[in-house]
């Protein structure tokens, strides 16, 4: 993956939080991990990618960060269903926005939500994932890009 493509996802994540939550997130330096290493917090929204690029994009965050995000969106119901919903919506929006630069051949699925570890999620063995670390207040999260 080229640096400018990675930048698309970084900017997309920043834009989501600044527009929907009205607050900035800090994005750390991206790093590479092997397909055996799955970065996971309490909730993960996974978007399958097909078309010209294959793989997945996922956003993973602790429940506390997602509850704060819901509150920033004006949502009062902070129950589990809405935590799952919002983690999927971050992944969906950042992936969908990436089509502005990557084009319509970057085909995205509806989000799949996983709670806890990603034991049953199989990532392509030959691809290393880029992890984009995110800090929002005291909480950490990650956007992970695993693409051919």
């Amino acid at each position: 993956m080229k640096e400018e493509q990675l930048q698309v996802f970084i900017e997309g994540t920043k834009y989501f939080f600044s527009t929907f939550a009205g607050q900035q997130v800090d994005v750390g330096v991206p790093y590479l991990v092997s397909s055996d290493t799955k970065v996971a917090f309490d909730y993960t929204g996974i978007i399958g990618i097909a078309g010209a690029r294959k793989g997945c994009v996922y956003f993973s965050a602790p429940g506390r960060l997602l509850a704060k995000l819901l509150q920033a969106l004006g949502e009062e119901d902070l129950e589990d269903d809405n935590l799952c919903d919002v983690v999927g919506e971050v992944a969906n929006t950042v992936s969908g926005n990436a089509r502005r630069d990557l084009g319509p051949e970057f085909v995205i699925s509806v989000p799949v939500i996983v709670k806890g570890q990603l034991e049953d999620i199989k990532l392509p063995r030959e691809i290393r994932s880029f992890v984009i670390p995110i800090t929002w207040g005291q909480d950490k999260a990650a956007l992970v890009i695993c693409l051919e």
């Binding site: 969906n92 950042v94 089509r99 084009g103």
Partner: peptide
């Protein structure tokens, strides 16, 4: 109202 931000869509 969509996340799909490409012109073609």
């Amino acid at each position: 109202v969509s996340a799909l931000a490409d012109k073609a869509t």
